[in-house]
Design a protein around this nucleic acid. Structure first.
Lengths: 180, 180
DNA sequence: CATGAGCGAAACAGCGCTGTACGACGAGCG
DNA sequence: CGCTCGTCGTACAGCGCTGTTTCGCTCATG
């Protein structure tokens, strides 16, 4: 057994948990342990309860998304550019993000707020349609990123294609506008 | 106890199952029984196993969507009108549809095919963007209807508003185009 | 009123998962 | 070499859910 630092081991467990939860939702602690390559007892020494494991996973994913969206400086660029950055950030978070989308019990993860702010600014500037409530827009963007990630990966699209597809779908829709 | 025809009772059970599964995913047979207002034993006389209950629910929802999409004559109207009809049909199916979206094990429910055909025709006619794979478009439309239904209901939108919001989002996106 | 069918309530065994505990094993260290 | 620490494998109790069974009740029918 290769000895790793406890925190590194902890991160490995969370990584494995994110992966196994992304593939199927109702994974047990034993499944996570198998995916992480450790025994169930050892996993319970890192996370004393199932709930604590999932809470740590959610916190890590939220934190990662929060950091990435924070680094994107969404409030210092145009709405268009901000949405492009946000979409790339969300796609980059990948599996963790999907886990959040599927497992979310709270109404809103913390990282949805910068998106709401950005979209609200877009509406105020007349860039984003005001017909649609911001809540719906946020959910729509998140879910479009999710579906594009999932489906796109299945048919072999790369991260850049996935990001641009999701963004284009969200902003311009599926219709061809040049013709009328 | 008001005696009802067995088939009517069966439908009531399925209705209750759809409702309780729409609210939270991991519902037990007991939860469905409570929601249906019957005892667990009685429910097991209608559906001998949990799996048979869910299979019947999925079959009923698929059938309902199939019938509605069939009645919409998607292949005899323009792509625009067809998408409008399809969206209204999907929103009308409501809870059953959401259940399918959340619980779907098979890669594609049977009713997604007419949507794929319609969108493919739209791409061929130059009405729908060909940048995006049809698989992604179908998933995007389904998931947009789902999120608009869920979020829209939460903030008090009616079925007509939900349908038009989902359709507009899917076709034209969130951006305002008139201004350039 | 008598009968039978359908339902509710409850008890039961089986099973899988959770969380805990204990003995064994291997690696680093004095 | 002996000690300690971390891990593994395993066993265990507890719990909730599944699926079955039994008993008593109610309502519809003859």
């Amino acid at each position: 057994m290769v000895r790793t630092r406890p925190t590194a081991r902890r991160d490995e467990i969370l990584e494995a948990a994110a992966e196994v939860l992304a593939s199927r939702e109702g994974a047990s602690v034993g499944d996570v342990a198998v995916a992480a390559g450790i025994s169930r007892g050892t996993l319970y020494r890192y996370f004393p309860t199932r709930e604590s494991l999932f809470a740590a996973l959610e916190a890590a994913a939220n934190e990662e998304a929060r950091v990435r969206l924070g680094e994107a400086n969404l409030d210092r660029v145009s709405v268009d550019e901000g949405l492009a950055r946000a979409t790339r950030a969300l796609v980059a978070v990948g599996e963790h993000f999907i886990v959040l989308l599927r497992e979310r019990r709270p109404p809103e993860p913390s990282f949805s707020e910068p998106l709401a702010v950005l979209l609200q600014r877009g509406q105020a500037e007349g860039e984003i349609s005001s017909d649609c409530p911001v809540e719906v827009l946020v959910e729509a963007l998140l879910v479009l990123v999710g579906v594009c990630t999932r489906t796109g990966r299945a048919i072999g699209m790369g991260a850049e294609d996935i990001s641009s597809t999701a963004l284009r779908l969200f902003l311009d829709g599926a219709r061809v506008h040049s013709g009328g």
